[in-house]
Design a protein around this nucleic acid. Structure first.
Length: 541
RNA sequence: GCCAGGGUAGCUCAGUGGUAGAGCAGGGGACUCAUAAGCCCUUGGUCGGGGGUUCAAAUCCCUCCCUUGGCACCA
């Protein structure tokens, strides 16, 4: 219904470059196959990237994989293969899935890439030269079995380390540390300033408070190395070959090491880089604190980035399964590859974009996926296209005539109303609300058909111009709906254009009413979204 | 434990002082251009429990229960 198109997220949109759009996703850890959460984030970023391309902006969409680290090293050892081979196998699964789902990225960030390693090492050298990194010896309790230091969090109710850790010993270890704590006040001020300026560091805004609380509790510096004896699978410290860098200065740096034109050398020419930066970082809520909300801004600050250049974070929620958190240990992971094969990639894209409010959690249900496809795509939009072309074919041999102006004005007003709601939603990173607005336009069109009953108009020669105007308004609305949904459903949008016999590129400016010319010949109707028939017993996941 | 947010129709949620709402699902009807789709009408709720303030509370206050997230490197 019309009033639902008014549901627009309240958070202001952070400012990123106007002429170009740089968007990144988290890079996925290559310790296992991709699940539905990985797919959601990449599709979300892809939809936003496609939307900005639709607006005519240059888009740089960066995604990739985080391939280093202890878990990968351990998993590879278990399989008796080299870490390199292990991550290559897992990485290929991710890339194949993104291809299947139509995730159209510009650059692939793999942390084992030579370009990335070089950038990470240059950054470490620079920060070391500038006194932001120091070496220190600290002690702690170490689990030999788990090959990790334990913190108080690992202690049980009795204040002891449980038997699951095996033999626990006190151990001292030298490592490199990054000066984090001295930037605490700067970061607090930045968070406040950016929110006050309407250019929030974090969206949605309820996450800003969470971040502020976390920063206020910040104390101590950040350990950024591991001795090679303990972890060999990583990027070597350029000034100390006994160590590799540990996660932060490896994974987070991908956002600039793979960006166009970045060079960490002091005084380097960053003209190209600045044309794109800052990026919009699309991340999950699990990695906001502390990685992206605390460490990353401070790392960039240390590298000389200005306050306005600290990138905004778009924090999405999680897909739960039957109310429970999805996890490998529960064995309730949803395989997006299987779903895409079963229902089609665009059906999955539609579900992932429509059934979750950006920033919040949602419950994944295969049954609901089918239901939303049938209700929204097959019954509402697909059938609208089909009945429109059938009527045009039956009553007018598929030729459009402008017809009476009053009826067309109604169509134009509806397109204006729902179209602007859709675009506003996409500007606010909410494909869910955008799709709802586009769907509301289709619903309005179906209402127009019922109100005007073209099958009756066709029997009365005196109503010929009205019939023409109805058919024109429907076809023109469908053309515009196709553009509006194209970021989410590029193939279906192309299918609508094809059936409308409208061979034009997708552009946002073409959502203007009235571009289909008088006398336009429409194509032949074919069901665009065939209904998914389910057995009554097939209840989904 | 601390901080923040929730608990409203079968499901997903809107509604912050003035006679309980939407979409989907369920039921009924009229129509026929259409993917048995679309359209119209409609059944569903003592608004988590208890107490309080008020002429009036889903809405404010107190309390209890349940739940989610963050504080703790799994999108």
């Amino acid at each position: 219904m019309d009033n639902r198109t008014e549901i627009i997220p309240a958070s202001p949109r952070p400012r990123v470059s106007a002429s170009s759009f740089f968007i990144t996703t988290a890079i996925d850890y290559t310790n296992g196959a991709p699940h539905i959460g990985h797919a959601y984030e990449k599709v979300l970023a892809d939809v936003l990237a496609r939307y900005h391309r639709l607006k005519g902006q240059e888009v740089f969409f960066l995604t990739g994989v985080d391939q280093h680290g202890q878990k990968v090293q351990q998993s590879a050892e278990k399989q008796g293969i080299a870490p390199k081979q292990f991550v290559e196998e897992v990485t290929s699964k991710f890339r194949a899935l993104w291809t299947k789902l139509g995730v159209d990225y510009s650059e692939w960030a793999a942390t084992t890439d030579a370009r990335h390693k070089e950038c990470v090492q240059k950054i470490l050298i620079r920060l070391n030269n500038e006194g932001q990194i120091y070496k220190d010896k600290r002690g702690g309790y170490y689990s030999v079995r788990q090959e990790q230091f334990l913190t108080d969090k690992e202690r049980n109710a009795a204040g002891e380390f449980g038997p699951e850790w095996g033999e626990v010993e006190f151990r001292e270890e030298e490592n490199y540390y990054f000066k984090l704590a001295e930037h605490k006040d700067w970061l607090l001020a930045l968070i406040a300033k950016r929110s006050a300026d309407g250019n929030p560091l974090v969206v949605p805004d309820f996450r800003v408070a969470e971040l502020r609380n976390a920063v206020e509790k910040l104390e101590g510096d950040l350990c950024i190395s591991r001795p090679k004896a303990r972890l060999a699978w990583g990027i070597e410290f350029p000034f100390d070959p006994d160590f590799v860098t540990y996660v932060w200065f490896d994974a987070l740096v991908n956002y600039i090491s793979f960006a166009p034109g970045y060079d960490p050398a002091p005084g380097a020419d960053l003209t190209t880089f600045r044309r794109w930066w800052p990026a919009l970082h699309v991340i999950g809520k699990d990695i906001l604190i502390p990685a992206h909300g605390v460490y990353w801004p401070i790392m960039l600050k240390a590298l000389g980035f200005a306050d306005e250049s600290i990138p905004p974070l778009l924090v999405h929620g999680w897909w739960n399964i039957g109310g429970a958190k999805m996890s490998k240990s529960l064995g309730n992971c949803i395989d997006p590859d299987v779903l895409a094969d079963k229902y089609g990639a665009e059906t999955l894209r539609y579900y992932l974009m429509s059934d979750i409010v950006t920033g919040r959690d949602a419950d994944f249900s295969e049954e609901r996926l089918v239901q939303r496809y049938n209700t929204d795509l097959a019954n509402n939009l697909g059938n609208l296209l089909n009945r429109t072309l059938n009527m045009a074919s039956k009553y007018r041999q598929g030729v459009l005539t402008l017809g009476e102006g009053e009826t067309r004005a109604l169509g134009e007003a509806a397109v204006q109303r729902h179209g602007s709601a859709c675009l506003l939603a996409l500007d606010r990173f909410s494909p869910d609300a955008g799709l709802e607005a586009a769907g509301a336009l289709a619903t309005w069109c179906n209402g127009l058909v019922e109100d005007t009953a073209p099958w009756k108009l066709a029997k009365d020669p005196a109503q010929a111009e009205k019939l023409d105007a109805v058919l024109y308004s429907l076809a023109e609305s469908l053309r515009i709906i196709a553009i509006l949904i194209s970021p989410v459903l590029p193939k279906a949008a192309a299918g609508i254009f094809a059936q409308l016999n409208w061979d034009k590129p997708f552009k946002l400016e073409d959502t203007t009413w009235g571009l289909l010319p008088d006398g336009h010949q429409l194509g032949k109707p074919t069901p665009l979204f065939p209904r998914i028939e389910t057995k009554a017993t097939d209840g989904g996941v």
